[in-house]
Structures are given as structure tokens and as C-alpha cells.
């Protein structure tokens, strides 16, 4: 009874593949069946190469057919966020940021209109908060959007609520939370995240001053 049960238990799991047997097809007499046997070695290599070539071709073909669409999707996703924080209409150009602020990950320039900074502020709760901050040529914050809130953190998500984000629109000088003497109302219960967003906006403003 118990033995049967254990057997049934074992049969619920798949049989693991056995180590490949030495040789499966009959060999002409006198030939040794191992990897040093040149004929069989070449044959194995040949078949594998052929298989890999066909698979590679398949992948290449799939890539060829989908490449443009994927690039298009990627572009439109980024465009959406960029347009949200700094409406422009034209093409944003990613430019190299040479300043000293390590929290700025990327800068997109909209010629004549301003810049969008991708900032990942230090000291956020999850360590992964990433924001897009749009600053126009006059150094005025135009919009803030959260692109990655760090998925283990509920409060970071609330930073993307408009009531909080819109407080930053129109700011020109360094921002601070009310608790620190500024005029930004923190998200209740998420002071650390709110501080991080302020830091990100300040970084973007400083970088915009450098660029403009």
C-alpha cells in the first residue's frame, strides 16, 4: 500500500531525461562509437549546425518583420510621456548631459521649447523612483510624470496622482516640502517619496539652468 503510494507520488513528476546514450544507431563493425570518431562527430556537428541555421533564419525573419513595429511602439510610448510634461509636437532629441548631477539619467531636448529630464532621485523609498520633469526654456517647470515608481512601494504610486504632481507646475526656484519650509504639500504618509520628488525637480531645474 505504502509502496504503491510512493510510486504514484514519483510518477506525478516527469521522467528526467537520461544522459544521452553512447550511440543509438548501429555502427559498421570495427568502428568505435565515441566523440573522437570523426565521421560521427562531423555528422553530429553538421546536423546541429543545420538546425541552428534554420532556427537563426527563423529568428532573423521574425525580427525583420517586426523590427519597425517594435521601434514605432517604443517611440510612441516615450513620446506620450514627453508630450505630457512638455508639449512640443516636434521631435525630441536625446542630448548628452555633461553636468555633475548623477541622478539625471537622460535629457531630451525640444529645440526652442525646453528640455525633459529623466531623473532618478537619490533617497527615494524604493530606490527606483524615476520621473520625467519638463522644464521650458525660461526655466519654469512645465510638468512632472512618474515613469517608474518602484513596484514594491505603494506610496510612490500615489506620487503620480495629479493633485500632487500639479503643485510643481510653474515653479522656477528650488522647491521644498511644507514641513521643510517650502510650499509643496507632501503626500500624507509618504514624506520620503515627496522629498525625493522635490529633489528630482530641483535637480532638473539646476540642470536646465546649466543648459540654458
Amino acid at each position: 500500500m505504502e509502496k504503491d503510494e510512493r510510486k504514484a507520488e514519483r510518477s506525478r513528476f516527469p521522467k528526467l531525461p537520461e544522459f544521452p546514450r553512447r550511440q543509438d544507431e548501429p555502427l559498421p563493425p570495427g568502428e568505435r562509437a565515441d566523440i573522437r570518431n570523426e565521421k560521427s562527430f562531423l555528422r553530429l556537428t553538421g546536423i546541429l549546425c543545420l538546425l541552428c541555421a534554420v532556427c537563426g533564419l527563423l529568428l532573423g525573419l521574425a525580427n525583420l518583420l517586426t523590427e519597425d513595429r517594435i521601434a514605432e511602439n517604443q517611440g510612441s510610448r516615450n513620446m506620450g510621456v514627453l508630450e505630457e510634461v512638455l508639449p512640443y509636437g516636434g521631435n525630441y532629441q536625446e542630448i548628452r548631459y555633461s553636468g555633475g548631477d548623477p541622478t539625471i539619467e537622460a535629457v531630451y531636448e525640444a529645440p526652442e521649447a525646453g528640455w525633459v529630464f529623466q531623473v532618478s532621485p537619490a533617497g527615494s523609498f524604493s530606490g527606483r523612483l524615476t520621473l520625467m520633469v519638463g522644464v521650458d526654456v525660461d526655466g519654469v517647470v512645465n510638468g512632472v510624470a512618474v515613469t517608474d515608481s518602484g513596484e514594491t512601494e505603494d506610496l510612490g504610486l500615489r506620487a503620480s496622482e495629479p493633485e500632487f504632481r500639479n503643485q510643481f507646475t510653474g515653479k522656477t526656484a528650488a522647491v521644498q516640502l511644507e514641513a521643510d519650509g517650502g510650499d509643496i504639500a507632501a503626500i500624507s504618509g509618504a514624506t520620503i517619496t515627496s522629498q525625493a520628488v522635490c529633489a528630482a525637480v530641483n535637480s532638473a531645474l539646476a540642470a536646465a539652468a546649466e543648459l540654458g
Binding site: P17, P20, R21, Q23, D24, L44, L48, L51, C52
Partner: peptide, 12 residues
Amino acid sequence: LPERIHMVSAVV
């Protein structure tokens, strides 16, 4: 496929 390359081919 020779049995020796069964597993490799499956993965590929």
C-alpha cells in the same frame, strides 16, 4: 536527430 543531440536540439 541522433539521440546524442536530442537535448541540445530541444533547447535550440
